[in-house]
Amino acid sequence: MNEKTAKRFNLSWSRLYEYGVYVIFLLMVIVFAFSNPHFFTVKNAILIVEQSSPLMLGVCGMAFVLMLGGIDISAGANMYLSAVTSALVMQKFAAANGPGGPAVYLIGISTALLVGAAIGLVNGCFIVKFKMVPFIMTLAMTSVLTGIGLILTKAELLPVRASGFQPSSIRVGPVSMVVVIVLIFTVVFHYLLKYTVYGRQLTAQGNNEEAARKLGIRTERNAIIAYVICGAMAGFGGVLSAGQVGALSSNFAKGNEFDIIPAAVLGGISLFGGKGSILPGAVIGIVLVNTITNGLTMMAANPYVYTIVRGVIIFIAVMLDSINYKGELR
């Protein structure tokens, strides 16, 4: 096969890949819109955006790890534990100083960021320094984090709203503060990935780590930072999500990594590393995942169908990614 035909071949696949997500998105919206009159409304659109927001932070962080060719399965468990510790700290603080006020927000969010970042640091150090397989390392982490969370809460329902932490009740125009914060972070992280030395070198090493090392790029440091960002954003997403829900059950954020990762991949960030961006890909990915859940709920579908749909979403995302990767000249 000569180069020209090879290129055309690649192009047609990447076209399908690029627009495939939009087509699915559009089809879904049409199907849902016809099956329920309340689906295609501004109110519902805002609801979907609100629901997507905390997970979008997770997607932003995950983008860095995926760019590297890594993966962080512990994102969901990280959200849970970060939210739990943060909620407990806020509870203590509220008990001493009375509920509400900006201090509660500040303390709650910084706790979640710190706990999340610490988890990311542990993940990153073991994966980079001991060459552990990211999947297994973070899978083990998932189990440990969930366990700690259950011990801290004694597996009981942990109220969050009582401390006065209600970020979704603060409105900015038609949406809540959560959406605004997430939008700002999304833009910042997109910028970090696309326009800074760190982001470009991370993208480079995700493509060819050996070459990056030969050029003197600090690959290990970059990789650890990626996991820290991923952890911190999961933690942040966790506490915002907790604020939306109002109380933490032992099932909180369970399996969220399987929304976050497919969303990123559907948005064009490759599991093989070095490809994709946060804007617009990853944003569309997460909105798509949430639109499907929302639509199914409105259709009053059998709750077990969600599990199947989630499986299908992961399948489609990974399949498109693999097809795209194979057809490419590296």
Binding site: R200, Q201, T203, A204, N207, N208, A212, L329
Partner: peptide
């Protein structure tokens, strides 16, 4: 030792 996912310009200046 090029990065196939980056542009020509990025490759030249990546360091």
């Amino acid at each position: 030792n090029l990065f196939s996912n980056l542009t020509v310009a990025e490759n030249l200046f990546i360091e």
